[in-house]
């Protein structure tokens, strides 16, 4: 395990941002490997509890996009 790397939990909407993350890959855009994506059906699905629990589990940041 690499020390001190940040962890960002990304809750991405299946219909837009998840697709955008896919497209970033297709376009070979390079970005730091700190993000862990959790696919959700819609940002409407996102309970504030998910954000809080991600932070509690040690995430340095939570990114919600949709």
């Amino acid at each position: 395990m690499v020390e001190n790397n940040t962890k960002i939990v990304a809750f991405l909407c299946n219909w837009c941002s998840y697709g955008a993350a896919d497209l970033a890959g297709v376009s070979r855009m390079q970005y730091p490997a700190d993000i862990r994506v959790i696919r959700i059906p819609c940002t409407g699905r996102l309970s504030p509890k998910f954000i809080l629990s991600a932070l509690r589990e040690g995430a340095d940041a939570v990114w919600v996009s949709g």
């Binding site: 993350a21 970033a24 890959g25 070979r28 855009m29 970005y31 490997a33 993000i35 862990r36």
Partner: peptide, 25 residues
Amino acid sequence: TNIRNHASWVHKDTPELATQKAKDL
């Protein structure tokens, strides 16, 4: 889980981190 678009394709200069991320995913 997407270890291509979200890992290998976007972290090609950091294979260790990409592998780590793939494991996490």
